[in-house]
Design a binder for these strands. Structure first.
Lengths: 192, 192
DNA sequence: GTCTATAGTAGGATAGAC
DNA sequence: GTCTATCCTACTATAGAC
């Protein structure tokens, strides 16, 4: 299996190639800045061929987000089962970092692209999951300092993977360093 | 002077009202997701009236970014004059946080909207300023851990002000708490 | 400074042949 | 699964009246 397709596709299907092309363009130009014509051109086909794979432009975005949303749901549900605050924070922190590193580009897309909330308004709702993640990190009745640290952490975790300077950093290394930095940001002790 | 217009406009001109409307829509829907019709509708006028104030859609975005870019340039140039690494980091950190708080929505727009790099490719170039800010924070020959902390900090600083949960937080409080959190993230001692 | 009207283009999406 | 051809809508932008 090629290294570039880890995690998104087991086989090189027309569908998976289309999704990869769309993700690259969405990351660079934004969803609203990318036309179906641009996607088709990148694949060397016509728009009609794109419509054979997906019934609409929204369907492409949904398909791109689906694996991330699914992983987010799993992370949130697992963390919410923990019984101490410390364990909840620990669980959600490692879970979100893992997911942000595995889905680097899609995470940034979900965090920053205005087309995502517009789409999920009537859909499976990534916003609610982000909200639950925030609550887990905040805990009950947070001080302003905590509120602000957690807000900063949210942007940092989801957006960092897209940074071109980190493109060459291995997943494992990136995960480890992000976890250390996130603990510092929240004022947690590094685990011995 | 009304509290809502601090920093962007001394008088309530048609131009300043237009910029405020555009910024609100750009923040919510993205630049590419906002049409001139939407801006005109929000002001209760027609598109032609918008074109009387700005010759193109790009010109509106440029006018919105200009005060932030100008402040960024000032911050970078001041920091680059400092002679010790510690003083450079201190200067750029306080400067960027101050600017990110004063221009909360525009900062997030510049950081996250794909229309901004597309525009500045041929313009005054905010990308080069961001690059210089990154260099000041990184220093020469950074370890991977530092590279990743600084990448996280960059997203965090520019995006945090847009967080709706922090809308009620006063500028002064937000600035102070962001500075404390940023120091923790970078592993700096709080100033005594 | 705002309007009506319109040009010219590009967008998402569909129909039907191969 | 990909094509050509087309529909309809929305977009940016301009011209010219008030």
């Amino acid at each position: 299996m090629d290294a570039a397709m880890r995690g998104d596709a087991r086989k090189e299907t027309p569908r998976s190639r289309l999704l990869a092309a769309a993700l690259a363009l969405y990351s660079r130009h934004g969803v609203n800045g990318t036309s179906l014509q641009m996607i088709a051109d990148r694949l060397g086909v016509t728009k009609a061929a794109v419509y054979h794979q997906f019934r609409s432009k929204d369907a492409i975005l949904l398909a791109l987000l689906e694996p991330l949303v699914s992983d987010m749901r799993e992370v949130v549900e697992r963390a919410e089962c923990e019984r101490t605050r410390t364990a909840q924070v620990e669980s959600v922190l490692t879970g979100v970092i893992d997911l942000a590193v595995r889905h680097r580009e899609v995470s940034a897309l979900m965090q920053a692209d205005p087309a995502v909330p517009a789409l999920h308004a009537s859909q499976s709702d990534s916003a609610a999951l982000s909200e639950r993640i925030g609550q887990l990190l905040l805990g009950p009745d947070p001080e302003p300092g905590r509120l602000i640290s957690v807000a900063m952490l949210g942007s940092a975790l989801m957006m960092t993977g897209k940074n071109p300077k980190l493109a060459a950093v291995e997943d494992e290394e990136l995960r480890r360093q992000m976890l250390v930095a996130a603990r510092r940001l929240l004022g947690l002790r590094s685990r011995g």
